[in-house]
Simulated scan of single mutants.
Amino acid sequence: MSTKSKIALVTGGSRGLGRDMIVNLAKNGNNIIFTYHSNKSEADKVVSEVLSLGQKAVAYPLDLGNIKTFDSFVQQVSEYLSEHAGSPNFDYLINNAGVGLYGSVTDTTEDVFDTLMNIHFKGVYFLTQKLLPLINDGGRIINISSGLTRFTFPNVSAYASMKGAIETYTRSLAKELGSRQITANSIAPGAIATDFGGGSTKSDKNKRNAVASITALGRVGEPEDIGGVVAFLCTSEAGWVNAQRIELSGGMMV
């Protein structure tokens, strides 16, 4: 890796929002480390795309819900960076990996609740904790929340609650890491047309129309509406943005 390029670590980068974040970060001249859950072929495509943009990329499998694997993952990252960048440190952490599981308050099982908690909150909390020693002073942490922390629909209580926790956690990060000049912000996408949570926002025409009807800009969001904002938050121009929740919903339910 070139020492001139900053380095971003993105979780959940093989498709959807994560992939678009990676592409935009690479277009801004950043080298990339990212994780994927199981789809190596899609991850390899993203690596190739970053290489075609003239930046370096490497992908590692990681189950964000299995905290016991974090130490070996952090060691992998540290060893890779030491070899290829001359230092085990990186600059930007984007906690994007997630899973869409939904159910009513009365029907949500403990297993579903625990899966959501482990991936969306506990996993983010402790992966960040373990990576903090590797993040350069002056770096950035961006956590992915959801528009569902401001507005709500049926069947999202557990998922939305984890994202509410992430927003509170992000403000605490900003407070505690200020002495290192590391900023922490959360972005809160609205309904985005990806495969997430079964992909209905991408494929269900009725749902798309319903979302468009309650969105000021009159359409469903696309991954391309999100990645550029994440890349912006990893620029010098965004250095004074800190402890903020930035909603990217096109004006849903305003």
Score class of each variant (00 low, 15 high):
L101Y: 11
G100W: 14
I141K: 03
F113H: 04
V105F: 12
S145N: 07
D111P: 04
G139T: 05
D137N: 12
K130W: 02
L93G: 02
K122T: 10
H120T: 08
I119F: 03
S104G: 11
N136D: 13
K130Y: 01
V99R: 07
L101F: 12
A97L: 04
Y92R: 13
F121C: 09
I135S: 03
N143D: 06
S87T: 14
Y80I: 07
E83Y: 14
P88N: 05
S146I: 09
M117G: 01
D91V: 12
V99G: 07
L127K: 08
E79V: 15
N95A: 08
V124H: 03
N95I: 09
Y102G: 06
Q76E: 14
T115C: 08
S78W: 09
L116A: 02
I142E: 06
T106H: 13
S82Q: 13
N143Y: 01
T109A: 02
D137E: 11
A97D: 03
S146N: 01
I135E: 05
G98S: 09
S87Q: 09
L93I: 05
S145R: 08
T115E: 13
S87M: 08
D111Y: 04
G123E: 01
T109L: 07
A97K: 05
I141A: 03
Q75A: 15
P88T: 06
N96W: 12
G138V: 15
M117R: 04
Y102F: 15
S104W: 06
G86I: 11
I144C: 05
A85N: 14
Y125W: 13
L101W: 05
F121K: 09
D107G: 10
I94E: 07
S104P: 09
Y125V: 12
D137G: 06
G103W: 09
F90G: 02
Q129S: 15
Q129D: 11
G100Q: 12
N89P: 08
L93C: 05
V77Q: 09
I141W: 06
V124D: 00
I144L: 15
T115I: 14
